[in-house]
């Protein structure tokens, strides 16, 4: 069973702005919803987990291997969707996914099969041969999600993945994620409570760079009437 350990990770940017402060999480397969207001440090933490940002202190271990010092082992099993990720405007969806597949070192035959499956799963078939620059925002976001899912990643790090999706697509994405997360770790960052309320196995609330609540949805809700109320109370207390 896979294990991702975030061990007392802190990140201070130049100028002394502390984005993440001594975050410690031990993550096992399932969907982990990372909730927090804007500027809470979610994206910074996601970047550190995805090995694109270095923590100022602390470390991240993937199955016991230090991913800060040796990121390759984690990158081989990673699917990453950064916030505001763009796409090459002159490639079509198939070409772009094939490019990402090459970067993920997926062999050609397997890549073709996976791309076909993902295009179907995300309902991108009708626009698969159109230049990405001509697609709507929602379709572009679905291509971005597809690239994250390529390669059957064991660790999926998705930052605000439902931005730009219509309600129907949001539901489809949540279902897809729930099926996908069976034996994988999915770290989903959002400030939209409903994105994780019914699908996450574990909720981590982060505010001002610190973990202020961590547990199953039931545990985090506690005495509050809903997850949203609990979230607002925790964030308000941290402020």
């Amino acid at each position: 069973m896979h294990r991702l350990e975030i061990d007392l990770v802190s990140k201070t940017y130049r100028g002394g702005i502390q984005a993440v402060c001594e975050v410690a999480l031990d993550l096992r397969p399932g969907i982990i919803g990372l909730l927090g207001p804007n500027g809470a440090g979610k994206s910074t933490l996601m970047g550190i987990v995805a090995t694109v940002a270095r923590p100022t202190s602390g470390t991240v271990r993937w199955n016991g291997v230090d991913a800060v010092r040796a990121p390759r082992a984690l990158r081989r099993v990673l699917g990453y969707l950064p916030q505001d990720a763009g796409l090459y405007p002159h490639l079509d969806a198939y070409e772009f996914l094939d490019y990402i597949a090459a970067l993920k070192e997926i062999d050609g035959r397997s890549a073709r099969r996976q791309i076909g499956e993902l295009l179907d799963a995300l309902d991108l078939g009708p626009v698969a041969k159109r230049a990405l620059g001509t697609l709507s925002g929602g379709n572009r976001q679905r291509v971005a999600i597809a690239q994250a899912l390529l390669g059957d990643p064991q660790l999926l790090v998705v930052d605000e993945p439902t931005v730009g999706l219509d309600p129907e697509q949001r539901v489809r994405f949540r279902d897809l994620l729930a099926r996908f997360a069976h034996d994988r770790i999915v770290l989903l960052s959002t400030h939209v409570v409903s994105d994780v309320e019914f699908t996450a196995d574990r909720i981590v609330v982060i505010a001002a760079g610190r973990v202020v609540a961590d547990g199953t949805p039931r545990e985090v809700i506690g005495p509050h009437p809903s997850l949203e109320a609990a979230y607002l109370a925790e964030v308000g207390r941290a402020a």
């Binding site: 995805a50 990720a85 970067l103």
Partner: peptide
Amino acid sequence: RANLDALLLATPT
């Protein structure tokens, strides 16, 4: 331009 730096850096290549 496409804001793809982080995504590409996170790949194993």
